[in-house]
Design a protein around this nucleic acid. Structure first.
Lengths: 192, 192
DNA sequence: CGTTTACACTAGCGCTTGCTTGGTTGACCC
DNA sequence: GGGTCAACCAAGCAAGCGCTAGTGTAAACG
Protein backbone atom coordinates (compact mmCIF):
# COMPACT_ATOMS: atom_id res chain seq x y z
CA UNK A 1 0.00 0.00 0.00
CA UNK A 2 1.31 3.38 -1.01
CA UNK A 3 -0.03 5.30 1.92
CA UNK A 4 1.97 8.38 2.85
CA UNK A 5 3.93 8.32 -0.35
CA UNK A 6 3.88 11.01 -2.97
CA UNK A 7 4.25 9.04 -6.19
CA UNK A 8 3.38 10.85 -9.41
CA UNK A 9 0.75 8.21 -10.04
CA UNK A 10 -0.95 9.06 -6.79
CA UNK A 11 -0.82 12.73 -7.62
CA UNK A 12 -2.53 12.18 -10.93
CA UNK A 13 -5.20 10.06 -9.29
CA UNK A 14 -5.72 12.79 -6.72
CA UNK A 15 -6.25 15.31 -9.48
CA UNK A 16 -8.87 13.14 -11.11
CA UNK A 17 -10.58 12.52 -7.81
CA UNK A 18 -10.81 16.27 -7.22
CA UNK A 19 -12.78 16.71 -10.40
CA UNK A 20 -15.27 14.02 -9.49
CA UNK A 21 -15.64 15.39 -5.98
CA UNK A 22 -16.53 18.76 -7.45
CA UNK A 23 -19.01 17.29 -9.91
CA UNK A 24 -20.78 14.95 -7.53
CA UNK A 25 -19.77 15.90 -4.04
CA UNK A 26 -17.69 13.68 -1.81
CA UNK A 27 -20.46 11.51 -0.43
CA UNK A 28 -22.05 10.86 -3.79
CA UNK A 29 -18.77 9.92 -5.40
CA UNK A 30 -18.41 6.17 -4.99
CA UNK A 31 -15.12 4.35 -5.04
CA UNK A 32 -16.36 2.64 -8.18
CA UNK A 33 -16.87 5.97 -9.90
CA UNK A 34 -13.42 7.10 -8.83
CA UNK A 35 -11.87 3.90 -10.10
CA UNK A 36 -13.61 4.14 -13.45
CA UNK A 37 -12.45 7.74 -13.88
CA UNK A 38 -8.92 6.57 -13.14
CA UNK A 39 -9.17 3.67 -15.55
CA UNK A 40 -8.78 0.97 -12.93
CA UNK A 41 -11.07 -1.30 -10.93
CA UNK A 42 -12.43 -0.27 -7.57
CA UNK A 43 -10.32 -2.71 -5.62
CA UNK A 44 -7.09 -1.38 -7.10
CA UNK A 45 -7.85 2.02 -5.69
CA UNK A 46 -6.97 0.85 -2.21
CA UNK A 47 -3.47 0.16 -3.28
CA UNK A 48 -2.89 3.91 -3.51
CA UNK A 49 -5.09 5.15 -0.70
CA UNK A 50 -5.87 3.59 2.63
CA UNK A 51 -9.52 4.51 2.35
CA UNK A 52 -11.88 6.96 0.70
CA UNK A 53 -11.24 9.57 3.36
CA UNK A 54 -7.58 9.63 2.51
CA UNK A 55 -8.36 10.57 -1.07
CA UNK A 56 -10.28 13.56 0.17
CA UNK A 57 -7.45 14.56 2.46
CA UNK A 58 -4.96 14.26 -0.40
CA UNK A 59 -7.06 16.50 -2.62
CA UNK A 60 -7.42 19.18 0.00
CA UNK A 61 -3.77 19.02 1.03
CA UNK A 62 -2.64 19.49 -2.56
CA UNK A 63 -4.81 22.56 -3.05
CA UNK A 64 -3.99 24.24 0.21
CA UNK A 65 -0.30 23.56 -0.13
CA UNK A 66 -0.28 25.14 -3.58
CA UNK A 67 -2.20 28.18 -2.39
CA UNK A 68 0.28 28.73 0.40
CA UNK A 69 3.29 28.46 -1.90
CA UNK A 70 1.74 30.72 -4.52
CA UNK A 71 0.85 33.38 -1.95
CA UNK A 72 4.33 33.37 -0.45
CA UNK A 73 5.93 33.67 -3.85
CA UNK A 74 3.63 36.51 -4.81
CA UNK A 75 4.48 38.38 -1.64
CA UNK A 76 8.20 37.80 -2.14
CA UNK A 77 7.94 39.11 -5.68
CA UNK A 78 6.35 42.49 -4.92
CA UNK A 79 7.65 45.56 -3.14
CA UNK A 80 6.84 46.33 0.45
CA UNK A 81 4.05 48.87 0.05
CA UNK A 82 0.82 47.76 1.65
CA UNK A 83 -1.08 48.53 -1.50
CA UNK A 84 1.15 46.32 -3.64
CA UNK A 85 1.05 43.50 -1.14
CA UNK A 86 -2.72 43.68 -0.86
CA UNK A 87 -3.05 43.45 -4.61
CA UNK A 88 -0.54 40.62 -4.75
CA UNK A 89 -2.41 38.56 -2.17
CA UNK A 90 -5.79 39.09 -3.80
CA UNK A 91 -4.41 38.20 -7.21
CA UNK A 92 -2.60 35.13 -5.96
CA UNK A 93 -5.71 34.00 -4.15
CA UNK A 94 -7.92 34.26 -7.22
CA UNK A 95 -5.20 32.82 -9.40
CA UNK A 96 -5.00 29.58 -7.40
CA UNK A 97 -8.74 29.51 -7.01
CA UNK A 98 -8.91 29.44 -10.78
CA UNK A 99 -5.99 27.28 -11.88
CA UNK A 100 -6.47 24.78 -9.08
CA UNK A 101 -10.18 25.21 -9.01
CA UNK A 102 -11.24 21.64 -8.33
CA UNK A 103 -9.05 21.15 -5.33
CA UNK A 104 -10.13 24.45 -3.82
CA UNK A 105 -13.81 23.90 -4.34
CA UNK A 106 -13.42 20.57 -2.60
CA UNK A 107 -11.51 22.21 0.23
CA UNK A 108 -14.21 24.81 0.68
CA UNK A 109 -17.22 22.53 0.37
CA UNK A 110 -16.12 19.18 1.74
CA UNK A 111 -13.96 20.22 4.65
CA UNK A 112 -16.50 18.87 7.09
CA UNK A 113 -16.22 15.39 5.65
CA UNK A 114 -12.65 15.07 6.86
CA UNK A 115 -12.17 12.90 9.88
CA UNK A 116 -10.74 14.52 12.96
CA UNK A 117 -7.09 13.59 12.44
CA UNK A 118 -6.99 14.74 8.84
CA UNK A 119 -8.72 17.93 9.86
CA UNK A 120 -6.20 18.56 12.60
CA UNK A 121 -3.34 18.15 10.19
CA UNK A 122 -4.84 20.31 7.47
CA UNK A 123 -5.98 23.00 9.87
CA UNK A 124 -2.38 24.01 10.34
CA UNK A 125 -1.91 24.50 6.64
CA UNK A 126 -5.05 26.56 6.37
CA UNK A 127 -4.15 28.62 9.41
CA UNK A 128 -0.75 29.38 7.96
CA UNK A 129 -2.44 30.67 4.85
CA UNK A 130 -4.92 32.79 6.77
CA UNK A 131 -2.11 34.26 8.82
CA UNK A 132 -0.55 35.55 5.65
CA UNK A 133 -3.74 37.41 4.97
CA UNK A 134 -4.01 38.88 8.44
CA UNK A 135 -0.42 40.01 8.19
CA UNK A 136 -1.05 41.87 4.94
CA UNK A 137 -4.26 43.33 6.31
CA UNK A 138 -2.34 44.52 9.36
CA UNK A 139 0.16 46.30 7.16
CA UNK A 140 -2.62 47.98 5.23
CA UNK A 141 -4.24 49.08 8.48
CA UNK A 142 -0.92 50.46 9.75
CA UNK A 143 -0.48 52.48 6.58
CA UNK A 144 -4.02 53.80 6.87
CA UNK A 145 -4.92 52.25 3.54
CA UNK A 146 -7.92 50.59 5.10
CA UNK A 147 -9.71 50.94 8.42
CA UNK A 148 -11.53 48.60 10.73
CA UNK A 149 -10.99 45.50 12.77
CA UNK A 150 -8.20 43.28 11.48
CA UNK A 151 -10.11 40.11 12.24
CA UNK A 152 -13.34 41.22 10.64
CA UNK A 153 -11.70 42.77 7.60
CA UNK A 154 -9.67 39.70 6.79
CA UNK A 155 -12.71 37.47 7.21
CA UNK A 156 -14.80 39.68 4.98
CA UNK A 157 -12.12 39.79 2.33
CA UNK A 158 -11.57 36.05 2.30
CA UNK A 159 -15.32 35.54 2.17
CA UNK A 160 -15.69 37.82 -0.83
CA UNK A 161 -12.82 36.06 -2.59
CA UNK A 162 -13.81 32.51 -1.81
CA UNK A 163 -17.37 33.20 -2.81
CA UNK A 164 -16.18 33.84 -6.36
CA UNK A 165 -16.05 30.11 -7.03
CA UNK A 166 -19.83 30.24 -7.02
CA UNK A 167 -20.34 32.79 -9.72
CA UNK A 168 -17.09 33.55 -11.52
CA UNK A 169 -17.00 32.44 -15.12
CA UNK A 170 -13.46 32.17 -16.51
CA UNK A 171 -14.88 32.35 -20.02
CA UNK A 172 -16.40 35.74 -19.27
CA UNK A 173 -14.85 39.15 -19.95
CA UNK A 174 -13.26 39.57 -16.52
CA UNK A 175 -9.84 38.25 -15.60
CA UNK A 176 -8.96 37.18 -12.06
CA UNK A 177 -6.76 40.25 -11.86
CA UNK A 178 -9.74 42.44 -12.68
CA UNK A 179 -11.60 40.96 -9.76
CA UNK A 180 -8.66 41.38 -7.43
CA UNK A 181 -8.20 45.00 -8.37
CA UNK A 182 -11.86 45.77 -8.02
CA UNK A 183 -12.00 44.19 -4.60
CA UNK A 184 -8.97 46.05 -3.34
CA UNK A 185 -10.40 49.28 -4.72
CA UNK A 186 -13.63 48.57 -2.90
CA UNK A 187 -12.05 48.24 0.51
CA UNK A 188 -9.29 50.83 0.28
CA UNK A 189 -10.37 54.35 0.93
CA UNK A 190 -8.93 56.90 -1.35
CA UNK A 191 -9.84 60.56 -0.86
CA UNK A 192 -13.02 61.34 -2.81
CA UNK B 1 -49.39 11.82 1.06
CA UNK B 2 -49.15 15.45 2.01
CA UNK B 3 -47.09 16.58 -0.91
CA UNK B 4 -47.43 20.25 -1.80
CA UNK B 5 -49.27 21.01 1.40
CA UNK B 6 -48.06 23.34 4.08
CA UNK B 7 -49.38 21.72 7.22
CA UNK B 8 -47.90 22.91 10.51
CA UNK B 9 -46.69 19.39 11.11
CA UNK B 10 -44.73 19.43 7.92
CA UNK B 11 -43.22 22.76 8.83
CA UNK B 12 -42.03 21.44 12.16
CA UNK B 13 -40.54 18.38 10.52
CA UNK B 14 -38.81 20.63 8.02
CA UNK B 15 -37.26 22.62 10.83
CA UNK B 16 -35.92 19.49 12.47
CA UNK B 17 -34.60 18.19 9.18
CA UNK B 18 -32.69 21.43 8.68
CA UNK B 19 -30.79 20.91 11.89
CA UNK B 20 -29.77 17.39 10.96
CA UNK B 21 -28.76 18.49 7.47
CA UNK B 22 -26.47 21.08 9.03
CA UNK B 23 -24.96 18.62 11.48
CA UNK B 24 -24.40 15.77 9.08
CA UNK B 25 -24.80 17.13 5.60
CA UNK B 26 -27.62 16.10 3.31
CA UNK B 27 -26.10 12.94 1.90
CA UNK B 28 -25.05 11.59 5.26
CA UNK B 29 -28.41 12.20 6.81
CA UNK B 30 -30.42 9.02 6.33
CA UNK B 31 -34.17 8.87 6.33
CA UNK B 32 -33.87 6.76 9.45
CA UNK B 33 -31.97 9.50 11.24
CA UNK B 34 -34.52 12.05 10.14
CA UNK B 35 -37.38 9.88 11.31
CA UNK B 36 -35.79 9.30 14.70
CA UNK B 37 -35.21 13.02 15.18
CA UNK B 38 -38.86 13.57 14.36
CA UNK B 39 -39.99 10.85 16.71
CA UNK B 40 -41.54 8.68 14.04
CA UNK B 41 -40.51 5.64 12.02
CA UNK B 42 -38.73 5.98 8.73
CA UNK B 43 -41.68 4.77 6.68
CA UNK B 44 -43.98 7.42 8.11
CA UNK B 45 -41.73 10.10 6.79
CA UNK B 46 -42.94 9.45 3.29
CA UNK B 47 -46.41 10.39 4.29
CA UNK B 48 -45.26 14.00 4.58
CA UNK B 49 -42.66 14.15 1.82
CA UNK B 50 -42.58 12.44 -1.53
CA UNK B 51 -38.91 11.63 -1.14
CA UNK B 52 -35.76 12.74 0.58
CA UNK B 53 -35.08 15.38 -2.04
CA UNK B 54 -38.35 17.08 -1.24
CA UNK B 55 -37.32 17.53 2.37
CA UNK B 56 -34.23 19.35 1.23
CA UNK B 57 -36.26 21.54 -1.08
CA UNK B 58 -38.67 22.34 1.74
CA UNK B 59 -35.83 23.37 4.05
CA UNK B 60 -34.25 25.65 1.49
CA UNK B 61 -37.55 27.16 0.41
CA UNK B 62 -38.40 28.04 3.99
CA UNK B 63 -35.10 29.78 4.57
CA UNK B 64 -35.02 31.71 1.34
CA UNK B 65 -38.63 32.77 1.66
CA UNK B 66 -37.97 34.13 5.15
CA UNK B 67 -34.87 35.98 4.03
CA UNK B 68 -36.79 37.64 1.25
CA UNK B 69 -39.61 38.73 3.54
CA UNK B 70 -37.21 40.01 6.20
CA UNK B 71 -35.20 42.01 3.70
CA UNK B 72 -38.30 43.59 2.17
CA UNK B 73 -39.62 44.54 5.59
CA UNK B 74 -36.27 46.00 6.61
CA UNK B 75 -36.16 48.11 3.47
CA UNK B 76 -39.74 49.27 3.97
CA UNK B 77 -38.94 50.26 7.53
CA UNK B 78 -36.00 52.57 6.82
CA UNK B 79 -35.75 55.93 5.09
CA UNK B 80 -34.66 56.28 1.52
CA UNK B 81 -31.02 57.29 1.94
CA UNK B 82 -28.63 54.85 0.31
CA UNK B 83 -26.61 54.61 3.49
CA UNK B 84 -29.60 53.65 5.60
CA UNK B 85 -30.78 51.11 3.05
CA UNK B 86 -27.35 49.57 2.78
CA UNK B 87 -27.18 49.16 6.53
CA UNK B 88 -30.70 47.78 6.62
CA UNK B 89 -29.93 45.12 4.01
CA UNK B 90 -26.71 44.05 5.65
CA UNK B 91 -28.35 43.83 9.04
CA UNK B 92 -31.35 41.95 7.73
CA UNK B 93 -29.07 39.54 5.92
CA UNK B 94 -27.03 38.73 9.00
CA UNK B 95 -30.12 38.67 11.16
CA UNK B 96 -31.77 35.91 9.10
CA UNK B 97 -28.48 34.14 8.72
CA UNK B 98 -28.40 33.96 12.50
CA UNK B 99 -31.99 33.37 13.53
CA UNK B 100 -32.69 30.98 10.69
CA UNK B 101 -29.19 29.64 10.66
CA UNK B 102 -29.87 26.00 9.91
CA UNK B 103 -32.00 26.60 6.87
CA UNK B 104 -29.51 29.07 5.44
CA UNK B 105 -26.49 26.91 5.99
CA UNK B 106 -28.32 24.14 4.17
CA UNK B 107 -29.23 26.50 1.36
CA UNK B 108 -25.63 27.60 0.99
CA UNK B 109 -24.00 24.20 1.28
CA UNK B 110 -26.47 21.75 -0.15
CA UNK B 111 -27.86 23.70 -3.06
CA UNK B 112 -26.13 21.39 -5.50
CA UNK B 113 -27.96 18.38 -4.13
CA UNK B 114 -31.28 19.71 -5.39
CA UNK B 115 -32.62 18.02 -8.47
CA UNK B 116 -33.12 20.18 -11.52
CA UNK B 117 -36.79 20.97 -11.07
CA UNK B 118 -36.45 22.00 -7.45
CA UNK B 119 -33.45 24.07 -8.37
CA UNK B 120 -35.36 25.81 -11.13
CA UNK B 121 -38.16 26.69 -8.78
CA UNK B 122 -35.91 27.92 -5.97
CA UNK B 123 -33.65 29.85 -8.31
CA UNK B 124 -36.40 32.36 -8.77
CA UNK B 125 -36.67 32.97 -5.07
CA UNK B 126 -32.94 33.38 -4.75
CA UNK B 127 -32.77 35.67 -7.75
CA UNK B 128 -35.49 37.86 -6.29
CA UNK B 129 -33.43 38.21 -3.15
CA UNK B 130 -30.25 39.00 -5.02
CA UNK B 131 -32.08 41.61 -7.06
CA UNK B 132 -32.92 43.43 -3.86
CA UNK B 133 -29.22 43.62 -3.14
CA UNK B 134 -28.30 44.84 -6.58
CA UNK B 135 -30.98 47.48 -6.33
CA UNK B 136 -29.62 48.80 -3.05
CA UNK B 137 -26.09 48.67 -4.40
CA UNK B 138 -27.24 50.64 -7.43
CA UNK B 139 -28.67 53.33 -5.20
CA UNK B 140 -25.44 53.53 -3.25
CA UNK B 141 -23.49 53.84 -6.48
CA UNK B 142 -25.81 56.57 -7.71
CA UNK B 143 -25.29 58.55 -4.52
CA UNK B 144 -21.54 58.11 -4.80
CA UNK B 145 -21.47 56.26 -1.49
CA UNK B 146 -19.54 53.44 -3.09
CA UNK B 147 -17.78 52.99 -6.40
CA UNK B 148 -17.21 50.12 -8.76
CA UNK B 149 -19.09 47.61 -10.84
CA UNK B 150 -22.60 46.89 -9.54
CA UNK B 151 -22.32 43.22 -10.38
CA UNK B 152 -18.95 42.72 -8.76
CA UNK B 153 -19.71 44.81 -5.70
CA UNK B 154 -22.93 42.98 -4.94
CA UNK B 155 -21.21 39.61 -5.39
CA UNK B 156 -18.36 40.60 -3.13
CA UNK B 157 -20.71 41.90 -0.47
CA UNK B 158 -22.90 38.81 -0.50
CA UNK B 159 -19.80 36.65 -0.37
CA UNK B 160 -18.45 38.47 2.64
CA UNK B 161 -21.80 38.18 4.39
CA UNK B 162 -22.53 34.57 3.56
CA UNK B 163 -19.06 33.55 4.57
CA UNK B 164 -19.84 34.62 8.12
CA UNK B 165 -21.65 31.35 8.74
CA UNK B 166 -18.22 29.75 8.71
CA UNK B 167 -16.64 31.76 11.46
CA UNK B 168 -19.18 33.87 13.27
CA UNK B 169 -19.80 32.87 16.85
CA UNK B 170 -23.08 34.23 18.22
CA UNK B 171 -21.76 33.70 21.75
CA UNK B 172 -18.84 36.03 21.05
CA UNK B 173 -18.69 39.74 21.77
CA UNK B 174 -19.89 40.91 18.37
CA UNK B 175 -23.54 41.30 17.45
CA UNK B 176 -24.78 40.79 13.90
CA UNK B 177 -25.35 44.52 13.74
CA UNK B 178 -21.70 45.12 14.57
CA UNK B 179 -20.70 43.00 11.63
CA UNK B 180 -23.12 44.73 9.31
CA UNK B 181 -21.89 48.16 10.31
CA UNK B 182 -18.27 47.17 9.95
CA UNK B 183 -18.85 45.75 6.50
CA UNK B 184 -20.70 48.80 5.28
CA UNK B 185 -17.98 51.02 6.72
CA UNK B 186 -15.41 48.94 4.87
CA UNK B 187 -16.94 49.43 1.45
CA UNK B 188 -18.24 52.98 1.73
CA UNK B 189 -15.69 55.62 1.06
CA UNK B 190 -15.74 58.58 3.32
CA UNK B 191 -13.18 61.32 2.82
CA UNK B 192 -10.02 60.61 4.80
C1' DC C 1 18.90 -16.22 -11.61
C1' DG C 2 15.42 -15.85 -7.88
C1' DT C 3 13.23 -12.30 -5.18
C1' DT C 4 10.92 -8.26 -4.41
C1' DT C 5 7.91 -4.49 -5.50
C1' DA C 6 4.26 -1.85 -7.73
C1' DC C 7 0.08 -2.20 -9.69
C1' DA C 8 -3.73 -4.28 -11.20
C1' DC C 9 -7.52 -7.85 -11.24
C1' DT C 10 -11.79 -10.86 -9.71
C1' DA C 11 -15.08 -11.85 -6.51
C1' DG C 12 -17.80 -10.88 -2.99
C1' DC C 13 -18.88 -9.93 2.19
C1' DG C 14 -21.52 -7.43 5.36
C1' DC C 15 -24.02 -3.64 5.80
C1' DT C 16 -26.85 0.53 4.75
C1' DT C 17 -29.51 3.00 1.69
C1' DG C 18 -34.04 5.19 -0.05
C1' DC C 19 -38.32 3.78 -0.52
C1' DT C 20 -42.71 0.62 -0.78
C1' DT C 21 -46.39 -2.08 0.90
C1' DG C 22 -50.27 -3.21 3.56
C1' DG C 23 -52.32 -2.41 7.65
C1' DT C 24 -53.68 0.05 12.32
C1' DT C 25 -55.19 3.94 15.10
C1' DG C 26 -57.75 7.74 16.80
C1' DA C 27 -59.95 12.15 15.96
C1' DC C 28 -63.50 14.35 13.51
C1' DC C 29 -68.10 14.64 10.45
C1' DC C 30 -72.76 14.25 8.85
C1' DG D 1 -72.25 5.28 14.34
C1' DG D 2 -70.61 4.31 9.84
C1' DG D 3 -67.33 6.70 6.88
C1' DT D 4 -63.39 9.49 6.13
C1' DC D 5 -58.83 10.77 6.58
C1' DA D 6 -54.36 12.22 8.32
C1' DA D 7 -50.82 10.10 10.81
C1' DC D 8 -48.27 6.45 11.92
C1' DC D 9 -46.15 1.56 12.13
C1' DA D 10 -43.86 -3.09 11.02
C1' DA D 11 -41.51 -5.45 7.73
C1' DG D 12 -38.70 -5.80 4.11
C1' DC D 13 -36.96 -5.40 -0.90
C1' DA D 14 -33.57 -4.28 -4.36
C1' DA D 15 -29.74 -1.73 -5.09
C1' DG D 16 -25.69 0.15 -3.86
C1' DC D 17 -22.05 1.09 -0.52
C1' DG D 18 -16.90 0.89 1.28
C1' DC D 19 -13.69 -2.22 1.64
C1' DT D 20 -11.09 -6.92 1.85
C1' DA D 21 -8.97 -11.23 0.39
C1' DG D 22 -6.45 -13.60 -2.59
C1' DT D 23 -4.20 -13.80 -7.06
C1' DG D 24 -1.67 -12.48 -11.47
C1' DT D 25 2.03 -10.08 -13.80
C1' DA D 26 5.66 -7.49 -15.51
C1' DA D 27 9.42 -4.64 -14.43
C1' DA D 28 13.38 -3.66 -11.14
C1' DC D 29 16.82 -5.32 -8.15
C1' DG D 30 20.80 -7.90 -5.87
Amino acid sequence: MNVMNESPRRKELTRQAAQLFVQEGFDRTTVRMLAQEMGIKSGSLFHHFRDKQEILAAVIEEGTQNALVMAREALARCDSSADARLHAMARAHLETLLTDRNAHVVALYEWRRLDSEARAHLSHLRDAYEELWEQVIDEALAEGLIHGDRFLVSRFVMGALNWTVRWYDPAGPRTPDDLADELVAMITRRPA
